[in-house]
């Protein structure tokens, strides 16, 4: 009798601990972007904010399955919501949006002049730009079908590469 009580108590404790364990933070199972966004919003508001990167990637993958120009707006609204809810800072929201859906390279943010700041780390900057171009390919081309935007970003990357090569050579010659 005593052991039966103990078993019941243990089961009750186990069930209670299950209820208070952290949520599983599962990704969206649907292929519909709007439904996936709703699912992600629910999960993020339910203690899964730490998984934001993974969720963003899930949403991109879902959108790649149904690419269209309107997807840009869906992502923008989702990021604005994330910032409003305090899941992301405004700066982070901008970073997430522009890295994937804008022609401009976030990698090139900086407050110091090119001779003193960009040129000494030119290889690193170009490598980061190349990575960002990969994200733009995903956001602009594969998610939003913005071919011209992506090709302009690709061209901009080549122009920056050329202009930095010349500028940094000129900076080095003036030292």
């Amino acid at each position: 009798m005593k052991s039966a009580t103990l078993l019941v108590a243990f089961t009750a404790f186990a069930l209670a601990s299950c209820a208070s364990s952290p949520p599983p933070c599962e990704g969206p199972q649907t292929r519909n972007l709007a439904a996936a966004v709703d699912h992600v919003k629910g999960a993020l508001g339910n203690g899964c904010a730490a998984h934001f990167d993974r969720y963003y990637d899930d949403l991109l993958r879902t959108a790649e399955g149904d690419p269209k120009p309107e997807n840009k707006r869906v992502f923008s609204e989702f990021l604005v919501w994330s910032a409003d809810e305090g899941i992301l800072s405004q700066r982070q929201a901008k970073e997430y949006y522009n890295r994937y859906f804008n022609v401009k390279f976030m990698t090139l943010q900086g407050d110091y002049n090119n001779c003193s700041h960009t040129c000494p780390r030119r290889d690193r900057v170009l490598l980061d730009m190349e990575r960002e171009l990969g994200d733009k390919e995903r956001g602009l081309l594969k998610v939003s079908l913005d071919n011209s935007g992506y090709y302009r970003a690709d061209e901009l990357f080549k122009e920056v590469e050329l202009v930095l090569e010349a500028t940094c050579t000129a900076c080095a010659a003036g030292r």
Partner: peptide
């Protein structure tokens, strides 16, 4: 001559961000 110009106009007077904006030329 070009070296001097590039150094002063693009190297010393611009950040990487302003250089990017110059290359993009505002909003085409």
């Amino acid at each position: 001559s070009l070296e001097k110009r590039l150094r002063s106009e693009l190297g010393n007077k611009m950040t990487s961000w302003t250089l990017q904006e110059t290359l993009l030329g505002g909003n085409p």
